[in-house]
Simulated assay, not measured.
Amino acid sequence: MRVMLKATMDTDKANELIRSGELPKMMQETMDRLKPEAAYFTAHEGSRTCYMVFDMQDSSQMPAIAEPFFTSLGARLEFTPVMNAEDLHKGLSQLG
Rank of each mutant, 00 (worst) to 15 (best):
G96V: 08
L77A: 12
M4R: 13
P36K: 12
L17K: 09
D10I: 04
A85T: 10
L92I: 12
D12C: 00
R19W: 00
Y51V: 08
A7M: 04
L95V: 14
T42L: 09
L92G: 05
I18V: 15
E45M: 13
Q94H: 11
A85L: 09
P68G: 04
K13C: 01
M52T: 02
Y51E: 02
E22N: 14
L34M: 04
D55V: 09
A14K: 06
T49Q: 06
T11R: 14
Q61V: 02
E16F: 03
M52N: 04
L23I: 10
G91F: 11
A39Q: 04
T42D: 07
A66Y: 01
V82W: 01
L23H: 07
D10V: 02
E29R: 09
N15T: 08
E22S: 15
L34I: 07
S59Q: 08
G91I: 01
L95G: 03
T30N: 05
L92V: 09
V82C: 10
F54M: 05
L23V: 13
N84A: 10
D10E: 08
N84L: 06
H89V: 12
G46N: 08
M4N: 08
E67S: 08
M56L: 05
Q94C: 04
K13V: 00
L88D: 00
H89E: 09
L5E: 05
G74P: 03
A7W: 06
R33G: 03
R33V: 06
F79P: 00
D55A: 10
T80A: 10
I18P: 01
A43S: 10
V82R: 08
V82K: 10
K13L: 15
D12P: 03
M27N: 15
H44R: 13
H44N: 07
L88C: 11
L34R: 09
K13P: 02
Q28N: 12
R19F: 02
K13T: 02
E86H: 13
E86T: 15
N84Q: 12
K13N: 10
L23S: 07
L17S: 11
V3Y: 01
Q61H: 04
Y40N: 09
M83G: 01
M56T: 06
R48A: 07
E86Q: 15
H44T: 14
R33D: 09
Y51G: 00
A38M: 13
L17V: 06
T8F: 00
M56A: 07
T11H: 05
M1R: 12
M56Q: 06
K35H: 14
